[in-house]
């Protein structure tokens, strides 16, 4: 036990929390924005898989992580807009659209990986880990001055560019939602689309923007997964982060700060799981904790909400 404790109190452990949280945070921000616009995107998992695959392939072909990153983002956005087309134009239940994207995201990406590598490399590969080298991954950044501070420097400095960006994007998303007219329109559409439409806000356009944003975030998250978290893409590598994000969104009360804290909590639990195995304990014991916490906190929220609604009316 003391062994575990000393493992946990190391800077490496705290470092890993941030690293693990970053992709969850991206997906959580995606979930938050679509939820503000009044719907749910449960296809984040699949979107991230596609972005991760194409990002890693593009960075290999171009020999540049920038190209890979941009490709991942574009793939995420385009696919999310296609989802929007099915949901908003063909009136498909958005939840079913999400499930379809996830179905394609798990096996379909492997298929695409195999046929693309078969064409370009001459043999079908089941992952791109053999292609992606550290040189074409998203760079890690050490922050001058801070990196020299004992402990804190080790925790905060040296992260992937996309890890820093995740927290920056979180702040920017919050600003977007609460300080810009776009954010105002998104929130208005989500809460009372008739009110928004009655003052000339295009509800359809705002919904497309929201789902496109979720694709953008999935692109960031996917790029991070295959070009920073791991070197290269492999099957089912997103491993439920898209679903965890839905929980983090709900647990964080649908707000960016809450979503960030929830993402960190999930990151913490996973990091803990890794440390468990490091000291010979079973990581499978720590891994379900965040999921259980989600259910419990949703139940508590529900309980509070129902009781508030039951409160007697105040006399006039």
């Amino acid at each position: 036990m003391s062994n575990l404790l000393s493992n946990i109190l190391s800077p490496g452990f705290f470092f890993s929390i941030f690293r693990i949280s970053a992709p969850i945070l991206y997906a959580t921000l995606a979930a938050i924005v679509v939820e503000k616009a009044g719907f749910a995107n449960i296809g984040l998992e699949g979107l991230m898989m596609f972005s991760a695959l194409f990002g890693s392939l593009a960075s290999y072909y171009a020999g540049s992580w920038v190209v890979g990153f941009l490709t991942a983002v574009i793939v995420g956005v385009v696919m999310s807009l296609v989802m929007g087309f099915f949901a908003f134009q063909l009136q498909t239940d958005i939840i079913l659209v999400g499930i379809a994207i996830n179905l394609m995201g798990s096996g379909g990406t492997l298929f695409l990986c195999k046929i693309i590598t078969d064409i370009t490399e001459g043999k079908a590969m089941a992952s791109t880990t053999g292609l992606v080298t550290s040189g074409i991954c998203i760079p890690n950044i050490s922050i001058p001055l801070i990196k020299d501070i004992p402990f804190i420097g080790e925790v905060i400095s040296g992260h992937s560019l996309l890890t820093y960006l995740a927290f920056l994007v979180c702040i920017l998303t919050s600003i977007m939602l609460y300080r810009t007219s776009l954010g105002l329109n998104i929130r208005a559409v989500g809460e009372n689309s008739n009110a928004a439409a009655s003052v000339g806000v295009s509800v359809l356009k705002i919904k497309y923007i929201a789902i496109g944003f979720s694709g953008l975030m999935s692109g960031f998250g996917g790029a991070f997964m295959s070009m920073s978290y791991a070197q290269g893409w492999s099957q089912d590598m997103v491993a439920g982060r898209g679903f965890i994000a839905l929980a983090a969104q709900a647990m964080g009360g649908g707000e960016c700060l809450g979503g960030m804290l929830s993402s960190l909590l999930f990151g913490f639990a996973q990091a803990l799981g890794i440390k468990f195995s490091a000291v010979g304990l079973d990581s499978n014991l720590a891994s379900p904790i965040p999921y259980a916490i989600t259910i419990i906190s949703l139940a508590i929220f529900g309980f509070v909400r129902i009781n508030r609604a039951k409160k007697p009316k105040v006399a006039a």
Partner: peptide, 8 residues
Amino acid sequence: HFMLVPSL
């Protein structure tokens, strides 16, 4: 029926 957004 008012055309207002309650949380704004």
